[in-house]
Design a binder for these strands. Structure first.
Lengths: 245, 245
DNA sequence: CGAGCAACTCGAACATTGGTCGAGTCGCCG
DNA sequence: CGGCGACTCGACCAATGTTCGAGTTGCTCG
């Protein structure tokens, strides 16, 4: 439940560099003098999330971020090697907002469903975190890993064969991400929706099924998400109760 | 099977403008003089797809695109109002590469599975088209709609209740998009994979399940995709054969 | 107390981007 | 020939991610 933002790494000396393997998590954070440094990774991430929430992904700018922190833009590069680092950090912070239970119940399917519903809610509070341009690195942040550990162990408890674990994990992950990305990017104004549906109506002969089923106007995102999740869990044969025997 | 790229709209007069509802498909293409104009929407899309394929999404630049067409950068804005237009057009072209059968068989589930496998292959040929930053407009291109029409009618034939059609459509769409986006963005080098797994191994006490199941090193994307698709279709109870009676 | 050094900050600058402005050119139709 | 609509484009703008190198700050050791 509590966001883990820091890291316990030792200092490195010298400016943060882009070299080596790359992912933020594989590199140390800055050491910190004895007193709190005016700028820290924590503060940067916090400001980044706030900025992203308030203004959206493409208004996240190193300069704007720095300004918000009362710092020069260049200063950020001491604590972070790249704008991508900031985004990685921010994404992990969203996972940090997802409540991950400390222990499993004896109804693994419910555990999974609850985890994913809660995660979805967190993502919807930070819509930029879905629909990000594809990232070249695997998620490795502490909050993500905590989340993932719970999900995967619940899947195994639900009876999923081990050799399907990755497939099931990806399917669920993609469902949540895709559904929330669609929901938060496709907020059409009434006119836009009307125009889109009119366009389809004008082509009803070519696309009768599509035109007849409110592809553009439907906005029952909760229902869409829940139904898809049921499909997946049903398809996986996720056990509803404790294992017999 | 054949890509529809053009449009049959009439001219509009004056420069293409950003105003109104916005989606490229709701606006006319340029008229064309009697002889083929040196630059056309078709040629632009073709060049854009080639550029995207060869250099990736963030090397798509209006200037680079224009250069490839032997034109000035500004000229593009006569045929297209925005870079986003180009991307919308390019995405629809990918759908145009997906073979969409002219008619259904009596095994709707197979129809669906084949369509999605074929679409996935097309997307993998154009990896940029998954993992695009979230687009603010619904897909409305002719190739997409053709694809969608087949998918949705197949779903109904498979026995899906009408009020689940959108949910099922989104779930399948998101699965393909998510799976291919993950696959094509997470092409880790051997060292990167090793470093990632080492990182996890070092935290085996905190994340035992994750560390034990090759989250970063697994690369059976075909299997992952196929399994997820089976989950979804099973969960939907998609009919394998013709409707009885 | 003071020298030295690591930790940190930052302004100026660079190349690159998406997009606009307004002045052109081209070729058909009268 | 004249005009007009279709099209092209060079110059320009504000903005971006990132680098360079020169500062400043404050702990640590003599």
């Amino acid at each position: 439940m509590k966001a883990i933002t820091g890291s316990e790494h030792a200092s490195e000396g010298g400016r943060a560099h882009r070299g080596g393997v790359g992912s933020v998590w594989l590199r140390p954070a800055r050491a910190g003098r004895s007193g709190e440094a005016p700028l820290t990774r924590e503060r940067i991430v916090g400001a980044a999330v706030a900025l992203l929430d308030e203004e959206g992904f493409d208004r996240l700018t190193m300069r704007r971020l720095a300004e918000r922190l009362g710092a020069g833009a260049t200063t950020l590069y001491w604590h972070v090697t790249t704008k991508d680092d900031v985004v990685d950090l921010a994404v992990d912070a969203v996972f940090g907002e997802t409540p991950v239970p400390g222990r499993h119940t004896d109804r693994p399917r419910d555990d999974i469903a609850r985890l994913l519903h809660d995660w979805r809610r967190a993502v919807l509070r930070h819509p930029w975190s879905a629909g990000l341009p594809a990232r070249r690195r695997p998620l490795l942040g502490p909050n993500f890993l905590t989340w993932m550990e719970f999900l995967q162990s619940a899947l195994l408890r639900a009876g999923l064969p081990e050799d399907r674990l990755n497939a099931a994990t990806w399917a669920l992950y993609n469902h949540v991400m895709g559904a929330t990305a669609a929901q938060s990017s496709l907020r059409l104004s009434p006119e836009e929706a009307r125009a889109g549906q009119a366009y389809l109506d004008g082509r009803r002969d070519r696309y009768p099924t599509v035109a007849a089923h409110s592809y553009v106007t439907d906005d029952d995102w909760d229902g869409t998400f829940a139904a898809g999740l049921e499909y997946l869990l049903d398809g996986m044969g996720a056990r509803r109760g404790p294992a017999a025997g």
